[in-house]
Design a protein around this nucleic acid. Sequence first.
DNA 1: AGCAGCATCAGCCAAAAGGTTGAGAGACCA
DNA 2: TGGTCTCTCAACCTTTTGGCTGATGCTGCT
Lengths: 208, 208
Amino acid sequence: MSAITVLLVDDHLVVRSGLKALLGTQPDFDVVAEAASGEEALELVDLHAPAVVVMDLAMGAGIDGIEAIRQLRQRNSRQPILVFTTYDSDADIVRAVDAGAMGYLLKDAAPDEIFAALRGAVQGKSVMSAPVASRLFQQLRNPDEVLTPREAELLSLLTQGLSNRELGQRLFISEATVKTHLAHIYAKLGVETRAAAIATAIRREGMR
Amino acid sequence: MSAITVLLVDDHLVVRSGLKALLGTQPDFDVVAEAASGEEALELVDLHAPAVVVMDLAMGAGIDGIEAIRQLRQRNSRQPILVFTTYDSDADIVRAVDAGAMGYLLKDAAPDEIFAALRGAVQGKSVMSAPVASRLFQQLRNPDEVLTPREAELLSLLTQGLSNRELGQRLFISEATVKTHLAHIYAKLGVETRAAAIATAIRREGMR
DNA sequence: AGCAGCATCAGCCAAAAGGTTGAGAGACCA
DNA sequence: TGGTCTCTCAACCTTTTGGCTGATGCTGCT
């Protein structure tokens, strides 16, 4: 049988070469290309048509991993995409799955877990690290705590330190509306002040 | 001549094996041991007495990189320690240098930069990535922007989302004093609201 | 002794944020 | 069609925060 062709996408050379070394210990994997950015990933997928793509979410410059996944999905490319990243923030997980990721692995995963995830992915199976799965479960159990798109947008700007007035101007809505959204966000995050909301968002939701 | 013996410390297996693969391309490096935690690092230094230690700061469990550096320094071990991490937050840099790190490399560094840093370190030279160096320089140039111990303490609590009243209670000072400290902190951070201060602190000062 | 930096506190005022209630428009779905 | 969700806005009121000025005691350095 032929080997599973893999495209690695990570802006850190050490991670790419580490992953390559790990996959090299298995006879059925063949790393056919490496990309250091989202843009490069799009090119190399077209060029090599790998059986599976392993992608980090945090990319230094240019489009990030989420956007790269989205654009790959919009082309008619069929290869499964596995997210391979350091953090298991709620927001990242949801966005990645939403964008069309096939699985979500953390970088401290054991080699066997990585191998199994890759082999599973090419067969159409979804695989994710245990901490990631438990976070998703919790979100499904408590849908009341999931922010609406608009709320998430506002929260993202909030973590930049903007005032209500600035938020309104930026989003083209009145300050009254901003306050309404904020009240809902506070309730969902379980906080009472914008300070706590920012702290929670940056730490728990991974908005950096 | 004999090879430079290296100990790798990083909780991510992929990073260790990537670094090992990179160093393997050079004839003068020999990775004699790998540690996945601070505790393990301390043991393996005793056991192998490597010529240089390459250490990540963020370690999943147990003592973190900074503490590991400090403890290594307190023993009579002489090997230079190179920090090899993802983020260049002001706080991390200062703390690492303070703990006795010999250099500070970012994970997106080019292979040649890594090789040069390792070779330099064993000869007693300090090496750091350009962004890291520029941050240190800026701190030296603008001592006015350095927070006093009390201000740092307050800022740390601020990033937990506490109100002025709560800050006062926690630090056993009046709300008036809290406001005075905050005003100074805002000036030093170059912000005007607590929201922006929190955002800046968590992102730039690395208070997570 | 004098000066600078730090930490502490007070009072006053304006601005911002938060709590509450109520309400209308559009989307979506049963 | 009716119900639910989301997004939008308003008015009112209380609390919190921020800007300003000024002041005290302590420490360390010169």
